[in-house]
């Protein structure tokens, strides 16, 4: 537990709360230098050998400052590559990533059709900051492929996001080859990798969301204490206090669920983690909606950061399965018990 507190602490020092959306490339370099990319990698593979919970602690802190460094997709890709025991170039790639090379995993479902001639057509959305990468890890059709971005029939198209803290790309495949040369894992191994990666993805997105929700709520309460109308601080009005108290309750309860499921996540079902991620992102959305409303007019201006939190929350909701998907899955799972 001391270890976790130290991680929170060092992340706060590296990314201080008063600097929102720190510049991407320097943030990325700093994160790599701190060794965060290899935080979960076993020590015999050159990593720090810490738990998923430790990685989630980092994402919680980065969520607070609306980090622009794409650490989540990078950690997911590393987990996929490191787990692919049969992948010939595995060790080389682990080393490249740990040295700071960026390889993202797609965080939205790919739509690819494989032709009879072995060539593929389609789109892989949800590749964050792929402009920084030379290769991307693509999970599709029950397999993982490491695709070089200079391969024939492959091109990146940026999809301009409302969320200004991140950049996202579609990988467009036109008669591109996803074959034995690009294959990282398939079959039963790919299926188990998928679950393993999904567990991390839900924990990390939930941590990012609840870090963001915590920061957004704190900013909102500070604003209400400072802003005076009718000769008193807005924070004195019970109508507003109760809304803040309800948000605090929801954030704290969602956080309790996050950390309880982060401990020994291997034993928690992917559905339970997905449902937890749905709750966390939904709470984040609610906090940021209220953040704008409670800030009044200033919350609608581009120069105030309220909207940045709201845009990030709305995007997090959509990644790795949305609310409807996970609520339905959790309902079905509970019905089977």
């Amino acid at each position: 537990m001391i270890e976790l507190a130290e991680l929170h602490d060092s992340a706060q020092k590296a990314f201080p709360a008063d600097k929102l959306m720190p510049e991407r490339d320097t943030s990325w370099a700093l994160a790599a230098e701190m060794g965060w990319l290899m935080i979960e990698l076993p020590e015999d593979q050159g990593g720090l050998g810490l738990t998923r919970q430790a990685a989630a602690a980092i994402h919680y802190e980065l969520g607070k400052v609306l980090s622009s460094a794409p650490l989540i997709p990078a950690m997911l890709a590393l987990r996929g590559i490191a787990g692919a025991a049969d992948f010939a170039a595995r060790d080389e790639w682990i080393e490249r990533i740990c040295c700071g090379e960026y390889v993202p995993l797609n965080m939205l479902p790919a739509r690819i059709e494989a032709g009879a001639d072995g060539k593929s057509n389609g789109t892989v959305p949800g590749l964050f900051d792929a402009d920084m990468a030379s290769h991307v890890l693509v999970g599709c059709g029950g397999a993982y492929h490491l695709v070089p971005l200079d391969a024939p029939g492959v091109r990146l198209v940026e999809r301009k996001l409302w969320d200004q803290s991140r950049r996202v790309f579609d990988l467009v495949l036109e008669e591109a080859r996803l074959d034995a040369n690009t294959l990282v894992a398939d079959g039963a191994l790919a299926a188990s990798l998928h679950d393993d990666i999904a567990r991390s993805a839900h924990l990390f997105l939930a941590a990012d969301s609840l870090g963001g929700a915590t920061a957004a709520l704190e900013m909102t309460i500070d604003f209400l204490k400072m802003r005076k109308q009718f000769d008193r601080p807005l924070a004195m009005f019970q109508a507003l206090k109760h809304r803040c108290a309800d948000l605090k309750t929801q954030v704290v309860a969602a956080e309790a669920l996050l950390w309880s499921r982060a401990t020994g996540a291997e034993q928690v079902s992917v559905t339970d983690l997905g449902a937890m991620k749905a709750l966390a992102t939904d709470v984040y959305r609610r906090v940021t909606e209220e953040m704008i409303q409670l800030h009044g007019g200033i919350g609608l201006t581009d120069e105030h950061p309220c909207h940045q939190f709201m845009k990030r929350a709305m995007l997090n909701l959509q990644l790795c399965g949305g609310l409807d998907h996970w609520r339905e899955a959790a309902g079905r799972a509970a019905l089977r018990q």
Partner: peptide, 9 residues
């Protein structure tokens, strides 16, 4: 099912 899943969580 969605409502139930939300409740369970």
């Amino acid at each position: 099912l969605r409502e139930f899943g939300k409740l369970v969580t």
